[in-house]
Nucleic acid binder design. Sequence first.
DNA 1: GCTACGGCAGTGGCAC
DNA 2: GTGCCACTGCCGTAGC
Lengths: 87, 87, 87, 87
Amino acid sequence: MAEDASEGPAGFAKEQLKSFIERIERLEEEKKAIADDIKDVFAEAKANGFDVKALRAILKIRKEDAEERKELEAIVELYLQALGIFV
Amino acid sequence: MAEDASEGPAGFAKEQLKSFIERIERLEEEKKAIADDIKDVFAEAKANGFDVKALRAILKIRKEDAEERKELEAIVELYLQALGIFV
Amino acid sequence: MAEDASEGPAGFAKEQLKSFIERIERLEEEKKAIADDIKDVFAEAKANGFDVKALRAILKIRKEDAEERKELEAIVELYLQALGIFV
Amino acid sequence: MAEDASEGPAGFAKEQLKSFIERIERLEEEKKAIADDIKDVFAEAKANGFDVKALRAILKIRKEDAEERKELEAIVELYLQALGIFV
DNA sequence: GCTACGGCAGTGGCAC
DNA sequence: GTGCCACTGCCGTAGC
């Protein structure tokens, strides 16, 4: 037989391609489901009288604080390394 | 005491707010984890010689097809219901 | 003469197109020149014993602080508006 | 006095550091201003009926051509130099 | 050369 | 029904 079992007439791994496509599509479905869940939570919060825009602002600030903290730790680490020669 | 135990001095349900915030943050973490997984799959596909841009194009086409199909089904359903009155 | 002097046989404003293209190319050159200047400054700093990575970290933090400050002002404004009914 | 007047207690040239940071921030502002100008030109072109995507494609092609030409010239130059030994 | 990041454009949902 | 805002995906740029 002239060709590898894993490759079709087109000369590439058709099954592998199919697999990648399907894995991604599956993951994207999951991602979308979670995005929908998030929407639901906002809707529920709103139904309980919370201001969605304000909630978003809070989430944003908390996210940025967390990131900034990580960055700060990184830069401290960086400085410590830079100073390491003197320690 | 004039106010409900679930409400603090600020006059709103602090615990409830906290709950909403945390639920959303948790979901966003999950979403991000999946996004990372998708990235990994693309990377793996690339490592296996596939063109990522082409993969994206395929995914896009399939997605559009799926949506068109859903729309078609929806409209067919609508017609069937409309006809149902007479059937 | 059947056609406007500003339009060629292709039916659109060739000169105008040329003008847009050249304006953008000129601006992109300027942009690149500045990017190169920035690179030079980093190189100079490095030659003076500064850690480029640390410089970048500082710049990033300063940039984010400035942005965050703007956002904070925006959210304060938001709150003030929300409270406006009580003022 | 053990240390240079230009260095503070921290043992490095604080003023120099400040200078580098500010020079870079200034240049980045200029760069951003130009990027905004470019945006404006695209917007203007669009308002005049041009397809922005097509404009970008043209710019890309011209840029690649220019780069290829430069590379070609560089290699020709290299050859000429190599041959120069024997000429 | 590849990877990661940031900015921009297009799309969809929400409020008015 | 229209306009506005947020989200996602895409592209070009910058760093390792």
